[in-house]
Amino acid sequence: MKAVIQRASNASVTVDNQIIGAIDNGYVILLGVTHEDSMEDVAYLVQKIVHLRIFEDEEGKMNWSLKDVNGGVLSVSQFTLYADTRKGRRPSFVKSARPEMAETLYEQFNDQLKAEGIHVETGEFGAMMDVQFTNVGPVTIIIDSKDK
């Protein structure tokens, strides 16, 4: 499971010209699921993300976590994180999990974030979405659960 985490001062996701999720301060998380992922990967990523210290303290050092700043999460499922571009010019997505499995793990990921006390807004699984946000820093972190 891969998560692209971007620190944001604001973020929203739109489907069919309607904003369906928005946060003010926190993370935009693009989440990719592969067919090898399990609940163990979900639990690992949630703990890493919730306690990741990439918000600045009063001295400008990255010492504060999402919980420390009472930040929210805009969570967006993104199967293209498992694109294989080694051959040809059109990416292959055979490493991405089948939609049924990916949606289940994506929902579990969001539920576990909520269980940690994090406010979570989401996109719509499988929909064409427009995601807008302001990346502060910019700060972008990529975590792959297979790298633990």
Rank of each mutant, 00 (worst) to 15 (best):
L113T: 09
G60N: 04
E100K: 13
T122I: 05
D130G: 02
T140L: 08
G117F: 08
E36R: 00
M129S: 08
D84M: 06
S9P: 05
Y44F: 15
A97P: 07
S145K: 00
P91I: 00
L113I: 01
L31R: 12
T34S: 15
N10C: 03
G117R: 01
N25G: 01
T104P: 03
A22P: 05
V13R: 15
A43I: 04
Y82P: 03
G71V: 02
M129T: 03
K114G: 04
F125A: 05
E56Q: 13
S75E: 00
V46S: 01
N25L: 15
V76K: 02
D144P: 04
L66F: 02
Q112R: 14
Y27R: 10
E56F: 07
Q112H: 04
V76W: 04
Y82S: 06
S12I: 03
K48V: 01
E121C: 09
N110Q: 09
Y27Q: 08
I20M: 12
K148Q: 10
D84Q: 10
K87E: 14
V15E: 00
A3P: 10
A97E: 01
T122Q: 08
W64V: 01
Y27K: 12
P138C: 02
S9Q: 03
K95M: 14
T134K: 06
M128C: 04
V4Y: 15
Y106K: 10
V131N: 09
R53L: 09
H119L: 12
W64E: 08
V120N: 11
R86N: 08
Q112T: 07
S65T: 10
Q6G: 00
L31Q: 13
E59V: 06
I141G: 01
V120A: 04
D84H: 02
V46W: 01
Q108N: 05
P99M: 03
T122W: 04
V4E: 15
N135V: 01
M1E: 07
N135D: 11
E124R: 15
Y82F: 15
M129N: 09
R89L: 11
Q47D: 15
Q6L: 08
T85I: 07
V28A: 09
A83V: 02
E116N: 13
D16M: 11
F109A: 08
E116K: 13
Y106A: 07
I118K: 06
K61R: 12
V4R: 11
V139S: 05
L45D: 14
F93T: 09
L52T: 02
A11M: 11
I29L: 15
F79N: 05
M1A: 14
T80M: 09
R90T: 07
Y106H: 12
D68A: 09
V69R: 08
D41L: 08
Q6W: 13
V33E: 02
M39L: 15
K114V: 05
L45I: 09
L66W: 05
D130H: 06
D57T: 03
K114Y: 03
F79L: 02
S92Q: 09
D37L: 01
D144G: 07
S145M: 14
N110D: 11
K114E: 00
I54N: 14
M101A: 11
Q18H: 12
A3G: 05
